[in-house]
Structures are given as structure tokens and as C-alpha cells.
Write a protein that binds this DNA or RNA. Structure first.
Length: 885
RNA sequence: AGGCGGUUAGCUCAGUCGGCAAGAGCGCUUCCCUUACAAGGAAGAGGUCGUGGGUUCGAUUCCCUCACCGCCUACCA
């Protein structure tokens, strides 16, 4: 261990491999209390992005912590087949080779996808390993595994038989690029600048009715014009017919209460096949449904002269021709929300189509109840409301997708159209209704989320009644991102109750979203992403993890600055080097086997600094535990950071340097204490920075008997019960006087390191030999006790400082800049004076004294005294400065 | 249109169940390559805690108003 700088690269690789080889994360027992997390399965097309890094670091912290606490801690990993996304990726690959999905045909295409998956599907899994994720990889699952397919089929059939799944012709969201239906959740709405076009429709007989629309091309499919029944402007028109331009179709003017009188002209064109509201109007009024586009967004034969045009070119052309016919009243700029496909960003087309749906209302009931009853909790709590709101307004779920990659819908249709669909897990040979063998399977596959929602139990083998399922379901904590609360979390809860009769997890921690400096979500497509893998390459996963955790508080979004991981990186280096110090110290003093037992036995005989650091350690252990229990990860990491760096390293380690080599106390108490605290800190840090702590754990074993061969398998620290409260105050005072002396040295250009003589009188702390020696060592001074009155004989060129009821003085280098010092002191005094006056006022107020609680009054009085003392001290120093004593 | 979050040091963020002389990391200033660590050490500078009200002995913290930023829901063509 010769390097003076921590190099994580080889170390991280080495230990991950060792952990896996040694089965550190594998759960192969069913005894003990389980603690289970199922991973939000990343897409097989995915790369690790910063959001994954945060999400999985949190899960890893929880699972490592629980594992060390002795739980039978299982983290189940896996990937999602991501139907549309994966199919798109593979199609793009094929395109490069001049091939297409259609040219290959279904079977060959699926073969291609599987082989793509074999090749790249575990890329993100490997990246998770680099992050340090301690999943049980022997349980790695994939949503297209055989057992998973079985689960999906079972669920489909079961819901169908219960009447929850039905097939219907509805208006759905259609992506003309992916040529598939999407669920409502898969559409992303964005504000876009468009136009509101006011079109004149000739009314049969005479005149026009003007309708406003953002999508003029849909007019070809209009089958009515609707107005509000109470709208006086149009009352006379209701029941009349309009002659629809281009298609030469007579359509009625109807009255419907859902028409907003204030919007546009108050008259709305009705296109039942291409608009959800119009669809509803049409059903109420028995209107005709005319589809004017094909599945790729091109106008079809119903669009007469416009057939074959893309929907957007058609828009232009129609406008042009309408203008030529003088049928455009006006065009207004208009900002509206346009739906886009969440996988390819193409503008969604509302489209009438026959699809499979799940009725969600009944399924949502237990999912609502469990949260209302408080048996399933969200952290932060505010997500409860979002979740419940969505469930309260839940709509039927469109689950069929017109793609090939995914779980094929287990439904067959008989050639005889009168026979009902055959819904079955097993592949049917003949139609059970008519007995003929002319049956074909539904060509569609199911929504990817129709498999994901089974994740918490399907990963354990459901519908088989496995031991895993029995022991590990329900799971404990789900850690996920806000954006899949509806897609996934809510649906998992519903599925959990429906198929397992029990909630799938009891806590849901929603981690914050990582955004860039403009507040946008970080994503690869936006090109604003920080690549976590690059950070791991450069500074190690531990740095990344620590930096992320310490920057993101309880479920709060974060704008990540670049170099955010420097905090972690520097911290690791500090840990590394402090450990090196311990090693060198132990070696120098020829200490091989360090036992802490005798130190504990003799704890009362310890010196101030040992009592102090051990007491602080216990306090911190308690606090960190509390933080973790409440998902306050940043508070926990900051707490260890502060304790380790600014107490242990800055003060305790420094104090250990005051002993000469092989000093009896150093060997028997100081070194054991140094190692004891180090051991506990490594354990406390392990969930956050697993690699470096594992590495050092093995160095530690040269000196200390530890409780496990891997730190990963060691036990979580508990406070021993050191409770030397009184040392805290003494140490604070020692620190304060050391800082004061250093300040004086710095102020008067004495090298902090230079040992100087300091005369003093009346400083109580220094009358204790032990304490005085500590101060002398840390501040690099030699104290000489003086008489009270000798303050009068201090020669020029020496600076005097008041401390407590006494003073100390030291020679300065060269000439003292009295004016500068005076200015500084006056500035300080005035600042404190202001605060003092405020406190005085408070204490002279009867209202304060009668209303405020006792302890606050006491505290305030104490503060006043301290401030008063500070002011007096500064004034005395001012006097001394000009030797006016 | 509703709902939710945010507004604290130059930057990124903590914090406060109301009682601090308001914190951290980075950045900045001065000094130091002191035998664990320059990815370091020592000493500093820097904020009237978004606006305006209210409650209170006391508000950065609680309530209301407004402003700005962001997110999520919603059938206004």
C-alpha cells in the first residue's frame, strides 16, 4: 500500500468479482426475517443513466444495510423486454442491412430480436454491477422468461374469465410510426404552437356555419357539426344539414351539451373516428364513423382526392383548397397540447380501432384502500395524493399492441365468425364451439406493462406455488421514480391484490428526478446527460454513489452540477490515506494484533480524547441508523462525512501524533481506539461506498480480528454505550483555544507550524496538565505560566489575547500592524454588539420572560453572557493593543 | 384550468415539529509540498433565508397574498 492517492479502478473490479464468486449477495436460505426489494427492471435496450445510478444506489444502500443488520436480504434483479422500444431498435438495425420486419416475417424477425437481446440485453446489468449493485444475480429475471409468459397468460385468461378483459372498438391513441395502439399513459403531451383554423361549412339552403379546428385534415371524416342546445346563435340551425366540402356529404347540425359556447365559434365539427370527444358525441347521437387515415398516418380512400397524402401534407393542401374556395374565415395562432408517442415522439393520432382492454375500476378498489388505511406508505408522503387521484379517475387500460415483440395475446379466432374467441393458456387445436380446426391466433401482443405489473410475484415463479413466493412475497420496499407511478407502481398494487390477495410491498420510496441546469430531465435524447459510466471509469463507483447521495435529499429533484462527484472522490482519498496512517502507525509501534477488549474494560481510565471520540462515535451510530430508517440518505452520509473527516481525522488522528514511539498509552489505548473507530466507520460507510470499505476491511484484518471475512457480510455497528458527555465540552474548549492561537499566529505571520513560547495567566483549562499538553501539541506552542500582573510588563512586539479570566501572549514576527489589528477588532466588536443588543432587548421584555419556555430563557441568558464576554474580551484586547492598561 | 414541488452564500444543495451568532461541498482570499492525505493542511471572506401581509414574546421555519422557475394531471375542438 504505497500509493498516496486512492485508485479505485482495479479495486472495484476486484471486489465485485470476489463478492460474486463468494456468493455474498446470493440468498440460499429461507430462515431469518426476510427483507426484499425487487428492482424496477430496466429496459434491455437501456444504458445506465444518472437516474438509474441514483435509484439503484438507494436500493443498494438499503439492501446492504439490512443485510448487515442480519436480515435475510434479497434484492431481485431483472430486465424488461420493452416491446415497442426494443422492436424499434432492432428494426433500425435491420434497416441498415436493407431489411425490414415485414420482409423477414414474424418468426424470423423475432429470432433477430432474441439474438439482439442475447447480445445486448444484459448491457445495463453489467453496468449495474459496476455501480456496485448487490443483487442476487442467480435470480435474474426477464419479463419474457418462460415462467413469466406463463404468468402473463394466466393473468390474461383469469381476467377474461372474470369479465375484466374485453375486446372492443374504441377510440385509442395510435402511433402511426410504430403502427400500434398505446395506452393513455404512453402518450406525452407537450405545448406546441399551432393554429386555430376557422372553416366555413355551407349550410344546406343558405349561408355558412363556421367551425374552429386545429386539425383541418380531419374534416374529411366529419359526420356532424355540434352546437350547444342553449346557444341562441345557432338555435335555428339545429337539425339542418351541412354540405361537407370535398367529400360532398350531407351531415347534420346537432345539439350537444358538451360543446363550449365560449370556445371558437361555439360550433364544432365532429369527427368520431379521429377525436375522443367527438367519439363520445357520436355515440350519443348515433352518428356515422368514417376513418380517413390508414395506420401509418396517410389519408385513405375515404379522403377522396387527398388519398395517399401524409396527414400533415394533407392539412396544407386542404387549407390551400379551402382558401381557394373562400371557405377559410380566419386563422389564429394557437398554443395547444399535442400528444406524442413516448417511445418515438411521433404525433399521436386518436384512432378508432378494435383493441383489448382491461376494466380497471374494480381492480383499483383494494389498491386505494390499502393506501388510505396506511398499510402501504409513500415516501415522501405527498405522492399518496397523486396516486389516489389517479386511481380515483382510472380509465380502462388498452393492452393490445400491434407489434411482434412481446407476449402474444392468448386468444384464437375461429374461421366461423359466430364462434366466440378462444381464450386459453394452452394452444387450442380445434374450436371448442364448432369443432373446426380453422383457428388463428390474435396477431397482437400485450402492452409491456401488462407483464411488468406482475413483477413482484412473477419473479418468484408465480403461478407456481414456489418456496420463494411463500417466503419473499410480499416484498418490503420499492424504490422508484415518479414518472412510473401510474405505469407501474399503481398497477403492481392492483395486480398484487388481484392475484396474490396481498399488497406487493409496504413502502414506496420515490426518489427525486435528476435534471440538468435548465430543469429538464436528463436524458440521452436531449443530449444533456451526464454519463455515470464515464464517472465510474474516471473516479470510481463509490465517488459517484457518494456524490449523488449527498446531493439528493429526501425525494427532492436535483439539478446536478458537473464535478458533483468530487466530494465523494476526495472523501474516499481521505479515508484511504487516514487508513494508511493507521497502518504506518501500527507498524512503527510493532503492534500486530490489536485488541480493543482491554480498552473497553478500562474505559474509565482513558484519556480525554479517547473518551471523546468514542462518545461521539456512539452518537453518530445512533443518528445514522435513524436517518436510514427514514430514508434520509443524504443526512446519513453527511453525518458520517462530518464525523470522520472533521472529528476523527482533523482532531483525533492529530492528537494521536503527540505520543512518542512505543509509548505505553499509545500502544495500549490510542492505537486500539483508532482502529476501533475506523472499523465502525468502515461498516457505517459500507452501504454508501461498498468498494473502498471492502478493500480496507481486508487491510484491517492484518491488525484486528473482525466478525466476517467480507465487510459485506459483517454486522451493522451498534453503539457500545460510551457516554462520557462531559468530555464533549472540554474538547470543544481545547479546540477553541487551539483555533484562537492558530488565528493569532496566522494574523501575525507566525508559521502555524513554528513552535513558539506563549506566556499565560489564569486560563483554567491549561492548569490541567493533560489538557495543556494537548493544546501545546496541536497549536505548536510552549506555555509558560506567569503572574497576573506581568501583563503590564509585556514588551512591544508581543501580542496579548484575553482568554477566559486570563490572558496569553506571544512574540510576533517583525512589526505588528496595530492599525490593521485595531480595525479588525473594532469590526468584530461592532458586529457582536449588534447581536448583543438584540438579545438584551429580548431579555428585558416582560412578554418574552413570561411566555418563553424556561430552557429558551436560560439559553438566551447564556448567549447574552457569552456575547458580553466576547465584547469585553475584544475591548480589553483593543486596550492592550495601544498599551493603555 | 387544477394539483404538487422549488425560491437560503458566486454555483449545487442541506436545515428549521417556531427560539443559532443560519450550515455543507465546490468556488474565492491569505499562508503552508509539516514524516496519512496538495483529491491535502491552517486561517478567512461571503447570506437582512423570493415579495407583501398576518399569527406569535419570538418567523428563514406556521398561515394568507403575489412573483418567478419546474413538474404532473385535465375531452375545451
Amino acid at each position: 500500500m504505497e500509493k498516496d492517492r486512492y485508485h479505485p479502478k482495479e479495486i472495484e473490479q476486484y471486489w465485485y468479482q470476489k463478492w460474486e464468486e463468494s456468493g455474498c449477495f446470493r440468498v440460499d436460505r429461507y430462515d431469518g426475517e426476510p427483507y426484499v426489494i425487487v428492482i424496477p427492471p430496466p429496459n434491455i435496450t437501456g444504458y445506465l443513466h444518472i437516474g438509474h445510478a441514483l435509484n439503484n444506489t438507494i436500493q443498494d444502500i438499503l439492501i446492504r444495510w439490512k443485510r448487515m443488520q442480519g436480515f435475510n436480504a434479497l434484492w431481485v434483479p431483472g430486465t424488461d423486454h420493452a416491446g415497442i422500444a426494443t422492436q424499434n431498435v432492432v428494426e433500425k438495425e435491420l434497416m441498415k442491412k436493407g431489411l425490414s420486419r415485414e420482409s423477414l416475417g414474424r418468426e424470423k424477425f423475432l429470432k433477430e430480436v432474441w439474438s439482439w437481446r442475447e447480445k445486448y440485453g444484459n448491457r445495463i446489468i453489467e453496468q449495474l454491477k459496476r455501480l456496485g449493485a448487490s443483487c442476487d444475480w442467480s435470480r435474474l429475471r426477464f419479463t419474457m422468461d418462460e415462467n413469466f409468459s406463463r404468468a402473463v397468460q394466466t393473468v390474461f385468461v383469469s381476467l377474461y374469465e372474470k369479465g375484466f378483459i374485453y375486446r372492443g372498438t374504441r377510440i385509442i391513441n395510435w402511433c402511426p410510426r410504430c403502427t400500434t395502439a398505446l395506452s393513455d399513459e404512453e402518450v406525452e403531451y407537450r405545448e406546441e404552437d399551432g393554429y386555430l383554423y376557422y372553416l366555413r361549412y355551407p349550410v344546406e339552403g343558405n349561408g355558412f356555419v363556421v367551425v374552429a379546428t386545429t386539425r383541418p385534415e380531419t374534416m374529411l371524416g366529419d359526420t356532424a357539426v355540434a352546437v350547444h342546445p342553449e346557444d341562441t346563435r345557432y338555435k335555428g340551425l339545429i337539425g339542418k344539414m351541412v354540405n361537407l366540402p370535398f367529400v360532398d356529404r350531407l351531415i347534420p347540425i346537432i345539439a350537444d351539451e358538451n360543446v363550449e359556447r365560449e370556445f371558437g365559434t361555439g360550433a364544432v365539427k365532429v369527427t368520431p373516428s379521429h377525436d375522443p370527444q367527438d367519439y363520445n358525441i357520436a355515440r350519443r347521437h348515433n352518428l356515422q364513423f368514417i376513418t380517413v387515415m390508414d395506420t401509418t398516418g396517410k389519408m385513405n380512400e375515404n379522403a377522396v382526392d387527398f388519398a395517399g397524402l401524409d396527414r400533415f401534407s394533407c392539412r396544407e393542401k386542404i387549407l390551400q383548397q379551402l382558401q381557394e374556395k373562400n371557405l377559410v374565415e380566419k386563422i389564429e395562432p394557437y398554443t395547444h397540447r399535442v400528444g406524442h408517442c413516448y417511445r418515438c415522439d411521433t404525433v399521436i393520432e386518436p384512432y378508432i380501432s378494435r383493441q383489448w382492454f382491461v376494466k380497471m375500476k374494480d381492480l383499483s378498489i383494494p389498491a386505494i384502500k390499502v393506501v388510505v388505511d396506511g398499510d402501504l406508505k409513500f415516501y415522501p408522503e405527498r405522492w399518496t395524493k397523486v396516486y389516489l387521484q389517479w386511481l380515483d379517475n382510472i380509465q380502462d387500460w388498452c393492452i393490445s399492441r400491434q407489434i411482434w415483440w412481446g407476449h402474444r395475446i392468448p386468444v384464437w379466432y375461429c374461421a366461423n365468425e359466430k364462434c366466440p374467441p378462444i381464450v386459453s393458456i394452452e394452444i387450442p387445436v380445434v374450436c371448442p364451439c364448432c369443432g373446426c380446426d380453422k383457428i388463428v391466433q390474435d396477431p397482437d401482443v400485450l402492452d409491456t406493462w401488462f407483464s411488468s405489473w406482475l413483477w413482484p410475484f412473477a419473479v418468484f415463479g408465480w403461478p407456481e406455488k414456489t418456496k420463494d413466493l411463500e417466503i419473499f412475497y410480499p416484498t418490503d420496499t420499492l424504490v422508484t421514480a415518479q414518472e412510473i407511478l401510474f405505469f407501474w407502481v399503481a398497477r403492481m398494487v392492483m395486480a398484487g391484490f388481484e392475484f396474490m390477495g396481498e399488497k406487493p410491498f409496504s413502502s414506496v420510496y420515490i426518489n427525486g428526478t435528476v435534471r440538468d441546469e435548465t430543469g429538464r430531465k436528463m436524458s440521452k435524447s436531449l443530449g444533456n446527460a451526464i454519463d455515470p459510466v464515464e464517472i465510474i471509469d474516471e473516479s470510481g463507483a463509490d465517488s459517484l454513489r457518494f456524490g449523488l447521495i449527498s446531493l439528493t435529499s429526501f425525494g427532492q429533484d436535483v439539478f446536478l452540477p458537473d464535478k458533483f462527484y468530487y466530494k465523494g472522490r476526495n472523501f474516499l482519498n481521505k479515508i484511504w490515506n487516514s487508513f494508511r496512517y493507521l497502518e504506518i502507525l501500527a507498524e512503527k509501534n510493532q503492534v500486530n494484533k490489536i485488541s480493543f477488549a482491554s480498552v473497553i474494560e478500562n474505559a474509565k481510565g482513558l484519556h480525554l480524547q479517547e473518551k471523546w471520540i468514542l462518545t461521539l462515535l456512539d452518537q453518530n451510530i445512533r443518528h445514522i441508523c435513524e436517518c436510514l430508517e427514514n430514508f434520509k440518505f443524504n443526512e446519513a452520509s453527511d453525518c458520517i462525512y462530518e464525523f470522520f473527516w472533521h472529528q476523527y481525522c482533523d482532531w483525533y488522528i492529530e492528537m494521536s501524533k503527540m505520543y512518542s514511539e512505543k509509548d505505553q498509552y499509545l500502544v495500549s489505548c490510542v492505537i486500539p481506539s483508532l482502529f476501533y473507530v475506523m472499523e465502525k466507520v468502515l461498516k457505517l460507510l459500507h452501504p454508501f461506498v461498498p468498494f473502498i470499505t471492502e478493500e480496507l476491511w481486508h487491510h484491517l484484518q492484518r491488525f484486528v480480528d473482525v466478525d466476517a471475512d467480507f465487510i459485506t457480510k459483517s454486522s451493522w455497528p451498534r453503539p457500545y454505550g460510551f457516554n462520557f458527555e462531559e468530555t464533549l465540552e472540554n474538547m470543544e474548549e481545547i479546540k477553541n483555544i487551539v483555533i484562537e492561537i492558530r488565528d493569532v499566529k496566522t494574523g501575525f505571520r507566525i508559521p502555524v507550524n513554528q513552535n513558539v513560547d506563549v506566556d499565560y495567566y489564569g486560563i483554567l483549562l491549561l492548569s490541567n496538565d493533560e489538557y495543556r499538553k494537548i493544546v501545546e501539541f496541536l497549536a505548536k506552542v510552549k506555555f509558560n505560566s506567569k503572574e497576573k500582573n506581568s501583563i503590564k510588563n509585556i514588551p512591544d512586539g508581543e501580542i496579548v489575547k484575553i482568554w477566559g479570566n486570563g490572558w496569553f501572549s506571544m512574540k510576533t514576527e517583525g512589526v505588528i500592524d496595530f492599525e490593521a489589528e485595531k480595525k479588525k477588532l473594532i469590526g468584530e466588536r461592532d458586529k457582536i454588539m449588534k447581536i448583543f443588543e438584540g438579545v438584551e432587548n429580548k431579555l428585558s421584555s416582560d412578554k418574552f420572560l413570561t411566555h418563553a419556555p424556561e430552557d429558551v430563557i436560560e439559553k438566551t441568558k447564556k448567549l447574552r453572557d457569552e456575547l458580553k464576554y466576547e465584547i469585553e474580551k475584544i475591548e480589553k484586547n483593543l486596550k492592550l493593543l495601544t498599551r493603555e492598561q
